[in-house]
Nucleic acid binder design. Structure first.
Lengths: 235, 235
DNA sequence: GGGGGCAAGTGGTCGGACCACTTTGACATG
DNA sequence: CATGTCAAAGTGGTCCGACCACTTGCCCCC
């Protein structure tokens, strides 16, 4: 066989899952057993497991064994958040464009589906974000902002949607945005956007929520675009 | 440090990239050098590299070294396609809901930005899909269908968008859809949807394109919903 | 000057050893 | 008899050193 051992091992473990030999939540044979059964070294087995763990297919519990995850989209998309982490400004523009497609729709659905408890929790997040309006760290603002939007998307009741959205968001990026807006004195503007979104949710008005969310993302997108290539309109 | 060595090593390598010590396309220090520099064993370094390779951040060339990828969204989202691979029906409904948010918007942008060459190529794909209308394999239909939609999304000129869309699509799922529609005799209905989308693109009418794409995805979504839980409307 | 092949350097794999953690059940204790 | 304790077994986590497979580039020979 010309194919690398580790790669083949990955395929064989995936096959064990596809064939139903081990289902979601079940325990895989031990690393030592697998190395014997597949005829490869334990190190290679570990690399294969590491790969599938990174993909969110397997979960390792030190001292307890290797398990197949529930294979829910959230599991498989966790790794996906590296995107926004290592991306640079140009690709962040692309990411924001995608968010501008998703978030308005998600916010609209949230407006229709949010429970009173959801709305209360989101309101609390909003108050917390605006509270202590003194000079706060951009990191705090960024984290709070992220939580606010993720809570809204979560109301849509679609775990895949939440996972995709999380992948397209990132704490580090939000920090940059808040730092930049702090310089430009636009902090209050973002808070207004948030309040408008919240009001639309309270009013259970999907279209207003969609519009408010779209305006919000577009504002950030424009800001980043101007910052990346001043004086050049983004296509 | 309580954190596992391998995990810390992943973070340190990521930091080397973030800090600009090694840029896209550049070569990383050798595994042996890294193991010395980071004070961990070569095996742990290899596991960290394996993890980042799986994520599409690094690329390994046997005998030649480890390199940072271009860090393009397409690189980072390749792994992401496992989602549609291992997902089952219930989560496919969620996936389709997300596609219903993305694809209409993407198709609208495509209508505005597609070049004449793009339109010609898409038309050819469409003809090819409908051509030979005799009894074809669902696999063929599924692959052609996938290519058609991906070509349209590509016209939007957003690599991140294309990558996300690719992750939410899958050949195997499309095969199931076409097999199911073949049984129900709805093949022609899907072809009509496609023609309507294509006409909107030719007319450079974003809103018509958006509507046609939304109707198309919704049709598939409804079909899957009815098939998954007959007689129960999807919330 | 061109071609072939050798050698150094790289990742790929292996085996064994030991460490850290979890789980379990036998044991002593109340 | 119930219960808490802890020791042992089993698991993943890490390390080391050796050797194999592949790439690259230099050097030698023609």
């Amino acid at each position: 066989m010309r194919t690398p051992v580790a790669q083949r091992t990955v395929a064989q473990i995936k096959a064990m899952i596809s064939d139903g030999e081990v289902g979601p939540g079940q325990q895989l044979p031990t690393e030592r057993d697998l190395s014997v059964r597949l005829g490869v070294s334990r190190g290679s087995v570990r690399e294969a497991i590491r790969s599938l763990t990174t993909l969110g297919v397997l979960e390792v519990r030190h001292g307890a064994g290797v398990y197949v995850t529930a294979l829910r989209p959230a599991d498989l998309l966790e790794a996906f958040s590296v995107l926004a982490e290592v991306s640079r400004d140009e690709t962040l523009l692309e990411v924001l464009q995608v968010r501008r497609m998703i978030e308005p729709a998600a916010t609209a659905v949230a407006a229709a589906r949010a429970t009173p408890e959801d709305l209360e929790r989101i309101g609390a997040l909003l108050d917390d974000m605006e509270d202590g309006s003194g000079p706060r760290e951009p990191a705090e603002h960024g984290a709070a902002d992220l939580g606010f939007h993720q809570a809204i998307v979560a109301c849509a009741g679609n775990a895949t949607l939440s996972a995709v959205h999380a992948g397209l968001s990132s704490r580090t990026f939000n920090e940059r945005v808040w730092a930049g807006h702090g310089e430009a004195g636009l902090t209050e503007t973002l808070h207004e956007d948030h309040r408008r979104i919240h009001e639309a949710l309270l009013a259970r008005d999907p279209e207003a929520a969609r519009a408010a969310a779209a305006a919000h993302v577009l504002r950030v997108e424009r800001w980043l675009g101007a910052r990346t290539s001043p004086g050049q309109e983004e296509a």
